[in-house]
């Protein structure tokens, strides 16, 4: 995650020096993303270079960079506003090892997809149990504050792990259904020179329509 926007958002509240930024950043995100002080200074320097941040006037102390306070420029303030009002881009999905692994497992000879799914689900459920134990140990809070921030960050991990488990359930169900209607297994592309435009990608894997929707 970029800490650039985090720093801008914090400086929009008040001027801070580097160490303060580090502490505040960690506290406000529930301690989930520790940052080192080097990252903070590198980022602040870039923000200064880009004209978004300035050393706070009257706080210069030539030999002690760690007490130097920083303040936002007008451009920096505008950036903070833009950040809050713009959604975080989903962008292209990251290349997910699990998705790749299962896609290959479906067509790999001698691999039982159900076993691959089960092994992964065990691991994802284990993570989910661990996150939930942390939640359970946390006193429940309805106050806006650091405890709530931390609990929402944990929830994000919980929902993320759950989405994976649900997807695995879905894979299992689709594979089970497909194995009732076996079709000739697709052969690897046999053209050794395949590398030109439209290579192996054009090959359709199945005539089945896309999944109909979420279960429930």
């Amino acid at each position: 995650m970029s800490i650039r926007h985090g720093i801008i958002a914090l400086l929009a509240e008040q001027d801070m020096h580097g160490y303060q930024l580090k502490v505040e950043f960690e506290r406000r995100t529930g301690g989930t993303w520790p940052v080192n002080i080097g990252q903070i200074y590198t980022t602040v320097q870039r923000l200064v270079r880009d004209g978004l941040v300035l050393p706070a006037p009257g706080e210069r102390s030539d030999d002690r960079a760690d007490v130097e306070r920083f303040t936002l420029t007008d451009a920096g303030r505008a950036q903070a506003t833009v950040w809050w009002s713009t959604p975080v881009e989903r962008g292209a999905p990251a290349r997910d090892e699990l998705a790749i692994k299962l896609a290959l497992a479906v067509t790999a000879p001698g691999v039982d997809v159900r076993d691959v799914v089960q092994a992964q689900r065990t691991e994802s459920m284990r993570a989910l149990h661990d996150f939930t134990r942390l939640k359970a140990a946390q006193p429940q809070t309805d106050d806006l504050g650091a405890d709530l921030a931390w609990s929402l960050v944990l929830d994000h991990l919980v929902f993320d792990a759950e989405a994976e488990v649900r997807w695995l359930d879905h894979v299992e169900a689709r594979v089970a259904r497909a194995s009732l209607h076996p079709r000739p297994s697709p052969r690897p592309t046999d053209d050794p020179a395949a590398g030109g435009a439209g290579g192996g990608r054009a090959r359709r894997r199945s005539g089945a329509p896309p999944p109909g929707g979420r279960r429930r």
Partner: peptide
């Protein structure tokens, strides 16, 4: 439950498939 998020509150999660326990998670971690 069919919601993994809620199953995670348990000490253990037992997975059934075709009438058999195929896996148990959550015990020791």
């Amino acid at each position: 439950t069919h919601e993994p998020r809620f199953a995670a509150w348990a000490d253990r999660t037992v997975f059934l498939r075709d009438g058999m326990v195929v896996d148990t998670t959550g015990g020791a971690s």
